[in-house]
Design a protein around this nucleic acid. Structure first.
Length: 738
DNA sequence: CAGTGAGCGAGCTTCCGCTTGACTT
């Protein structure tokens, strides 16, 4: 029984903080948000001042009960949720629930709001000593954000159900993510490779060393990427160049430095883990969560590059003792957040100690890899820059009309590179031969090379997260979920770790960008954030801000629901006449399995053909015959064959389909049912019972006796069978829409 | 459950952002 209760969001945090504060304090976790808008219509009422109908989430009841019972016996409650918009709202929701549950008892409890951005004893104590009250403006801003997301999603999605296909979704975040992928695909399709030629000179120095240099000027003009665009031009240039004599005319030496990258935040961690370790965004986050819970790293959902003083000090000590003073900068390196709308509630992602490598901590293999990545990146950010000697040589023709250049780079001091190299920024030493000005260079060969420009690459998980972050769309806690949503809706697919839009995804994007451009604009979120900031600062009120958004949005959705026909979206005219009826026009339509061509005259004419450019439908192998006669139609020679459903599931059905529609899931055998005498049984291999025979007749339900026997004692031994069954039933309506 | 769509219209789907478990086959 504690006099003082502290509420935080995460249970891992609560344990640490409890240690700092001692016996008089009990720390409880809210486990994130405790109330939310139910996923159904009417949770926000725009007609009634945007009234928000919050409900306690299923999983939160337990947590709220624990909090209420502790607070009921306490004198002080410290709301210590994260110091950002969402955190402020969580505190408010918790308080609202406390008031509702404890009623008058709450009068005896003093309520304080405290915040800290790092979990250290001093920071937490300082926070407790400097409480404030809840910030209503910040809470209002969060509510505006929540209502807007709900209204956009729950207004646009039903339009998609009616106009495109059931079960689809649209939202402020996911629709822009989808748009990025679709527009990239359009760019790739519209891309026309352009030819260009590069020309390298291969020279010999006076000491017979080789030098490769790029053509830098030609006929007195600087050579650019598209200076030579065909073979004839390139050949002519080569001929001219071959006739010249060359010498070194300039040697330029300078020192160059490169600074380390900032420590990880969620998005950069996901990107680097993807590139360096091949982890998906989801895998990175669950692995990081384990490390966080074990106390090995700081919080993994953050958009701040800030580092705690103590951590910086510990890094400097470790760097100094491990590699020497020359790797420790005079003053700690300081990093600033690039993003505009960063909430900066947490620290950057770093390890909690620096003297241990992942291998020393006896972690799982994946955890070790991620731990080391995080530790190295953090340490590197507090190390000295890498230093190079950079040399540029100019090889000029005697005519002074043409010149080549070569650059070389030698690492003279590794600095942070000793520990960490960001992928895509690798540095290789490139050595140049030792030459002096006026040295004659003999031409060994002038090499022309043909190139073509390449289309922009399709997004990977990493590059998509990066793009979203740059637009300020989505949050650290949602990047992985956004990707899952696009995949779940089958808007996109991943192939060799690259995103490809599916037909439905492209149709949805086309529809949304054509008719709801403003709401799927890349800057829509940024504009929203400006408004939310104004609300946070008390400069605007949340209801008028929502009104300003809602009135035109509502009007637009009503107009579009009326004016845009389903066929405008999902059908595309081709101008071809139907070869079957000779009257109808062939349209490209969206079917369950993608797009196809069909006659306009449907349903009178049912002519269809596959879309060109589609993968040719593989010639169907004749289905495997089981030799078992069909027990239903009993037609002569009607046997059961093995087939694959459209979803890839194997089933067995009568070979005379569609005449006879008899079908079973498991493999049939000729053996009459001992119970109902149905002529066949089915067999299935299971791990637990081996081969199980069953009667396919549902009303019979006979099963292999051995199975029943072996199963029986288990039922008795586990009287909680009913209890274990419940979640299974609960699980059924979840996702996995079949 | 076996090639696809229209419209009729039961009953149903859907947002974003916080946080962790604890069901299995």
């Amino acid at each position: 029984m504690s006099k003082n209760i502290v509420i935080v969001e995460s249970p891992a945090k609560s344990k640490t903080i409890e240690k700092f504060l001692g016996k008089d304090f009990q720390v409880l976790a809210s486990y994130g948000h405790v109330r939310d808008l139910p996923s159904k219509t009417g949770s926000v009422d725009p007609e009634n001042g945007f009234a928000m109908n919050y409900k306690v989430a299923d999983g939160s009841e337990k947590n709220l009960k624990a909090i209420a019972s502790a607070v009921g016996k306490a004198e002080n409650v410290y709301l210590a949720t994260d110091p950002d918009r969402e955190g402020e709202a969580i505190s408010w929701h918790v308080l609202e629930e406390l008031k509702r549950r404890l009623k008058k008892k709450m009068d005896a409890v003093s309520v304080h709001r405290i915040v800290f951005t790092e979990i250290t004893k001093s920071a937490v104590k300082h926070a407790v000593d400097n409480p404030r009250t809840l910030n209503d403006s910040l809470i209002d801003a969060q509510q505006a954000r929540r209502a807007l997301d709900y209204l956009v999603g729950f207004t646009l999605s039903p339009i998609l159900w009616r106009k495109v296909r059931r079960g689809l979704s649209a939202g402020r975040v996911q629709s822009v993510a989808l748009r990025l992928i679709c527009e990239r695909e359009s760019e790739i399709e519209a891309f026309k490779p352009e030819e260009y030629w590069s020309i390298d000179g291969l020279f010999n120095t006076p000491t017979s060393e080789e030098l490769v240099a790029k053509l830098h000027t030609y006929n007195g003009k600087k050579v650019e990427k598209f200076s030579f665009t065909n073979e004839a031009d390139a050949k002519a240039v080569v001929e001219t160049l071959e006739k010249e004599t060359y010498s070194i005319t300039d040697i330029e030496k300078k020192k160059a430095r490169r600074n380390p990258s900032p420590p990880f935040i969620t998005s950069t961690l996901q990107q680097e883990a993807s590139r360096k370790l091949g982890f998906s965004a989801r895998k990175t986050m669950t692995t990081a969560q384990r490390l966080y819970e074990a106390g090995h790293i700081t919080y993994m959902r953050t958009d701040s590059v800030h580092l705690a003083q103590e951590a910086v000090q510990a890094m400097r000590e470790e760097i100094g003792s491990r590699w020497g003073k020359q790797y420790v900068p005079e003053k700690p390196n300081f990093y600033k957040n690039k993003q505009q709308n960063a909430q900066e509630a947490h620290e950057a992602i770093r390890t909690t100690r620096f003297d241990a490598r992942g291998e020393d901590l006896k972690l799982e293999a994946d955890q070790t890899k991620l731990y080391n990545l995080i530790r190295n990146r953090a340490m590197a950010c507090q190390m000295t820059p890498a230093e190079f000697d950079q040399t540029a040589l100019t090889v000029e023709a005697a005519s002074k009309q043409h010149s080549f250049r070569a650059t070389g780079r030698i690492l003279t001091f590794p600095g942070f590179l000793k520990v960490y190299q960001e992928s895509g920024m690798e540095i290789d030493d490139s050595l140049l031969p030792s030459v002096e000005v006026n040295d004659a260079m003999s031409v060994k060969e002038i090499q022309p090379e043909q190139h073509f420009t390449e289309p922009p690459p399709r997004y990977s998980e990493a590059s998509l997260v990066k793009a979203l972050e740059e637009y300020g769309i989505g949050r650290p806690s949602t990047y992985a979920a956004i990707i899952s949503t696009l995949l779940d809706r089958q808007y996109v697919r991943l192939d060799k770790r690259r995103f490809y839009p599916e037909d439905v995804g492209r149709i949805v994007t086309k529809f949304l960008t054509e008719h709801f451009e403003k709401y799927v604009d890349y800057n829509f979120t940024a504009h929203m954030e400006d408004d939310l900031d104004a609300i946070s600062r008390g400069e605007k009120k949340w209801v008028p801000v929502l009104d300003e958004f809602w009135s035109p949005f509502k009007q637009l959705t009503e107009e579009k629901t009326e004016s845009v026909k389903k066929s405008d979206i999902t059908a595309e005219a081709t101008g071809e006449t139907c070869p079957a009826c000779g009257k109808g026009e062939i349209m490209i339509r969206l079917g369950r399995y993608g797009r196809f061509k069909g006659c306009n005259n449907y349903p009178e004419c049912k002519h269809t053909e596959p879309l060109e450019g589609d993968k040719p439908t593989e010639p169907k192998a004749p289905p495997e015959d089981t030799g078992v006669s069909c027990p239903q139609c009993k037609a002569d020679g009607a046997t059961i064959v093995k087939r694959t459903s459209r979803r890839g599931k194997i089933f067995f059905s009568c070979g005379t389909y569609p005449k006879c529609d008899y079908a079973v899931w498991d493999k049939p055998i000729v053996e009459p049912c001992p119970e109902c005498s149905w002529p066949i049984l089915t067999v299935k291999e299971t791990k637990r019972f081996g081969t199980v025979k069953k009667c396919p007749q549902k009303e019979c339900g006979w099963q292999d006796k051995e199975t029943v026997k072996r199963k029986a004692p288990e039922d008795k031994a586990a009287p909680k069978k009913a209890a274990t069954k419940k979640p299974a039933a609960k699980r059924a309506p979840r996702k996995k829409a079949s």
